[in-house]
């Protein structure tokens, strides 16, 4: 094979893969290929991804190129090795013919076969896909930034927990972490930006919106009851987000209706969960919410008017009232629910 033929092959690779292909050297060929499974047009169905390096020597194609993995998502060490072994074997098999495009295709093909989440939920340690056929399949989700997968319930429980902690810390004036703030800015533990989180597995930063759709899902299944450990509610994390603005506008609209009709309006159930809402904590035993708790039917009103006052005027002593009122409301609506998710959880033991 002449250098010219190899150069033409490289052009072909470039034409096929476009931006997914980075040519580091045109001769001897050295390229990085970003591969995604073929089923991945829908990003929610994509669970794996990789960047593969194909590096040939001057004796290419008589000597097969070296295949290595630059980075990957959603593949554990075993699957990484498996992928590389297969492509490398293919290279040896095709030795002495121009093979770059074929190798790339093989890699994509194999990755497509591996396009499923693998292993256990890192939080509860039970399989994402129960294989015994007896355990109940629990919905799971994937963080878009790193492709780590979790049971929806597990990640939401964790998300609510860390926000509860942040609130508890700020409420109690706990200065425990005060003098660590500066060293924490790399986002090691509690990330400073409340609209962000860190993956529990790799600490990679993700956006709160990644989790919000899961929150909706879990909320829709009204798994509130199982969040017994949630002691508080997100006060700060999403206050500035768009979803929170929408929520506020919605409450204000309700309030207007309420004023017009001169009575109380129950929020419609089908819109009771919107992004930015959080699973309701048990109402606090103390002060501001005591009143709302006892009012039964009137709770929604309490929630709405507080929302309104807190967003339009000052929040003074009732700063926390908005959250609590809203939560009480949600809790009421779901109180007759048969604790489905809790059951799910228990069944797995």
């Amino acid at each position: 094979m002449t250098e010219e033929e190899v150069a033409m092959e490289m052009e072909a690779v470039e034409a096929v893969y476009g931006e997914e292909c980075v040519i580091l050297d045109s001769y001897p060929p050295h390229l990085h290929l970003h591969i995604m499974p073929r089923t991945a047009e829908i990003s929610s169905q994509q669970f794996v991804e990789a960047v593969v390096s194909i590096q040939a020597g001057s004796k290419y194609p008589d000597e097969p190129p070296r295949i290595s993995l630059i980075e990957s998502k959603g593949l554990d060490a075993q699957r990484q090795k498996h992928l590389m072994d297969i492509v490398q074997a293919k290279a040896s098999q095709l030795s002495s013919s121009l093979m770059l495009v074929e190798l790339c295709e093989e890699a994509v093909e194999r990755l497509t076969i591996m396009n499923h989440p693998d292993g256990d939920c890192p939080l509860c340690l039970y399989p994402l896909f129960p294989e015994d056929g007896e355990s109940k399949q629990m919905p799971f989700m994937k963080l878009m930034s790193c492709f780590h997968c979790f049971h929806c319930e597990c990640i939401i429980r964790w998300w609510n927990w860390i926000h509860t902690q942040k609130e508890a810390d700020s409420k109690s004036g706990d200065t425990k972490h005060m003098y660590r703030e500066t060293s924490d800015q790399e986002g090691n533990s509690g990330s400073v930006d409340k609209s962000m989180g860190n993956c529990p597995v790799c600490r990679k930063v993700f956006h709160a919106v990644d989790i919000e759709h899961v929150l909706d899902l879990v909320g829709a299944q009204s798994s509130q009851q199982d969040s017994g450990l949630v002691q508080g509610e997100d006060k700060d994390p999403l206050l500035q987000s768009d979803s929170e603005k929408i929520r506020r506008e919605w409450f204000e609209a309700i309030l207007r209706t309420q004023e017009e009709k001169g009575g109380l309006v129950q929020p419609k159930k089908n819109i009771s969960v919107v992004p930015g809402m959080y699973l309701p904590p048990p109402p606090p035993a103390s002060s501001s919410s005591g009143q709302t708790q006892e009012q039964g039917e009137v709770e929604p009103k309490e929630a709405e008017s507080e929302t309104n006052s807190s967003s339009s005027t000052n929040r003074r002593g009732r700063g926390r009232g908005r959250g609590w009122g809203h939560n009480v409301n949600r809790r009421k609506q779901n109180s007759q629910d048969p604790r489905k998710p809790t059951m799910q959880w228990v069944q797995r033991s």
């Binding site: 939080l123 509860c124 340690l125 017994g228 450990l229 959880w345 797995r348 033991s349």
Partner: peptide, 11 residues
């Protein structure tokens, strides 16, 4: 908690 128990048994 129940959740902690399950997780520890698994561990």
């Amino acid at each position: 908690s129940k959740i902690a128990c399950n997780r520890l048994q698994k561990e």
